[in-house]
Amino acid sequence: MRRISPKAAAAAPATAEAPPPPRNLITPQGLERLRAEYKTLWTVERPKVVEAVSRAAANGDRSENGDYIYGKKRLREIDRRIRFLTKRLDCAEVVDPALQKNRRQVFFGATVTYVNIRDEEVTVTIVGQDEADMTAGSISWLSPVAKALMKAGIGDTVPVRTPAGADTLEVLEIRYPD
């Protein structure tokens, strides 16, 4: 066993602590959707695929057995998604927008109507990364538009730089769920 002198130990670089996990803000509804997806994958989808793979494996030669090969691939996909959902659920920070006291400014969970530099009126709801769906009008709180709108009030004009270029947004309305 090798001994390290106190002088050498003091000169050794300190071990760096792991950075904290990124924040995973989510609405209560978004959390329930993630939990429902996890439960469906774990209790319905995965057992079905395991059964199919087991039946296919019993048929003999697995190297040319399409059902077995596809089933194993699908099982890996399900397991990968379950691991992802587990990590996201473990670090989820639930923020209920209905409890927001300051409803005069834009915060997480707000539904904001704004007009951009092209005079297009747009309505978005600021939600967590796992809930964002632009086709449904939901944007991530980490998106450039959401970051620009944060803490803005009705009538405020905020600059935003997006991948499409620079823009200016004027806040017309801010709503929170009751």
Rank of each mutant, 00 (worst) to 15 (best):
L41G: 00
E37N: 12
G71P: 01
R80V: 09
R81T: 02
E64T: 15
K87A: 15
E64G: 14
Y68R: 01
V94F: 08
I82K: 06
G60K: 04
V44R: 13
K73V: 14
A92W: 05
F108I: 03
R88K: 11
N116A: 09
L99F: 09
G66V: 13
A52Y: 14
V106Q: 01
R74G: 03
K72V: 14
K39A: 12
L99C: 04
P97V: 07
P47E: 07
K73L: 15
D79E: 15
I82G: 01
E77A: 10
E37R: 15
E37V: 10
R103L: 07
Q105N: 06
V95L: 13
E51H: 11
Y70A: 14
Q105M: 10
V106K: 03
A56D: 01
N65M: 04
Y70P: 00
Y68P: 00
L75P: 01
Y38L: 10
T40K: 14
K72I: 14
R76D: 12
D61H: 06
A56I: 04
V95Y: 07
T40I: 08
N65A: 03
V49S: 03
D96I: 08
P47F: 08
F107V: 10
F108H: 01
K87C: 06
N116Q: 09
R88W: 03
K48F: 15
R62F: 06
N102D: 15
F108V: 02
R103M: 05
Q105D: 04
Y114N: 05
V94Y: 07
G109V: 03
L89W: 07
D61R: 12
V115M: 11
E37A: 11
A58K: 09
R74E: 12
R104F: 13
I69T: 09
K39I: 07
D90N: 12
S54A: 13
D61P: 08
R46I: 11
E37G: 05
I69K: 13
W42D: 10
L75K: 04
E93R: 08
T113Y: 05
Y114I: 09
K73Q: 15
A56P: 01
P47D: 05
E51T: 11
K48R: 15
T40A: 12
E93K: 08
R62M: 11
Y70N: 12
Y70C: 04
N59K: 15
D67I: 10
N116M: 10
V112P: 00
D90M: 11
V95M: 08
K101H: 05
K87F: 14
D79S: 08
K48T: 13
T40N: 11
S54L: 12
G71C: 04
K72A: 05
Y38E: 02
L41R: 01
E64M: 13
Q105K: 14
R80G: 10
V106H: 02
K72F: 07
G60P: 01
V94Q: 06
I69C: 06
L89N: 05
A92I: 06
F108Q: 00
A57W: 04
R55D: 06
E51M: 10
A56N: 02
